[in-house]
């Protein structure tokens, strides 16, 4: 019932949307991530020898891939839902036989796929460039899926709640980007002073980056398995928010 033809059609529409505008949705973010690797990894990396016994370029690769994934996933669903709402073609979906749960899930999974493509893109180019082997590919995939789903759901929620374009860019520029930069992509929390270290523990992206780093390099600040539980909880919370917003968001069903 949940994954019926109606749901599958909306999901395939979501995939069609981002593949149709791939020059805008896939190429620029991929390029940005590769620039991070070049600028931070190669240029600065010659000055920073190792972090936790791992060469700097290797150390930042999982986090850069995850940053790309998170950017892709939340932007995809927030813009897709907001655009559909602004131009009212979301009405076609809202009056169809789909439930709000199915609608929220289709938009969120569309964003999840886009995020996974972005993250995988960075790894496909980055792994040969950096020269690492992924230690736990299954775990990395799991972390990737959960992180992507969490941020895609957050995007769905904000897209459904937003009334103005700037609320969408607020999510990207004021919430997600700073959290990503402070989430330990470029450094280990061990390197931070006490207060900042504690603050980092409130950054959800920190847990995702840390677990992804463990899955790739077998080095991390925290034990990866309880971390996985936290990421799972975040995914559930974010999707509950998306579902609620699809049902109660302003100017959806009034």
């Amino acid at each position: 019932m949940l994954a019926d033809r109606s749901f599958r059609t909306l999901l395939s529409r979501e995939v069609l949307r981002f593949t149709r505008i791939w020059v805008q949705t896939i190429v620029p973010p991929l390029l940005t991530s590769l620039l991070y690797l070049v600028v931070f990894g190669v240029a600065l990396g010659t000055r920073i020898q190792e972090v936790n016994g791992v060469p700097y370029l290797e150390y930042i690769l999982p986090g850069v891939a995850l940053m790309s994934l998170i950017t892709g996933s939340h932007m995809n669903s927030s813009w897709s839902v907001f655009d559909a709402k602004r131009e009212r073609y979301i009405d076609e979906v809202l009056i169809s036989p789909m439930s709000d749960l199915q609608i929220a899930l289709a938009y969120s999974l569309g964003g999840t796929l886009r995020g996974l493509i972005m993250g995988a893109g960075v790894l496909v180019v980055g792994i040969p460039f950096v020269g690492v082997t992924v230690e736990h590919p299954g775990l990395l995939l799991l972390i990737g899926v959960l992180s992507s789903f969490t941020f895609a759901s957050l995007g769905t929620m904000v897209g459904a709640m937003a009334n103005r374009v700037d609320q969408i860019s607020f999510l990207t520029n004021v919430v997600v980007q700073p959290l990503a930069f402070l989430g330990g992509v470029f450094y280990s929390v061990e390197m931070l002073p006490g207060a900042l270290r504690t603050a980092t523990l409130f950054d959800p992206i920190f847990y995702m980056v840390d677990a992804a780093r463990y899955a790739t390099l077998e080095t991390s600040d925290l034990n990866p398995y309880p971390t996985l539980g936290i990421v799972l909880l975040l995914a559930v919370l974010a999707f509950t928010g998306a579902w609620w917003a699809m049902n109660r968001g302003p100017n959806l069903r009034y």
Binding site: S6, R13, R20, E87, E92
Partner: peptide
């Protein structure tokens, strides 16, 4: 009010709509 999905072609608007209704 006209509310067509701007990412789709004419034919896709029709077939996707049918899909949303389980056809």
């Amino acid at each position: 009010e006209i509310n067509l999905d701007k990412f789709l072609t004419v034919e896709e608007v029709l077939t996707y709509h049918a899909g949303y209704y389980g056809v």
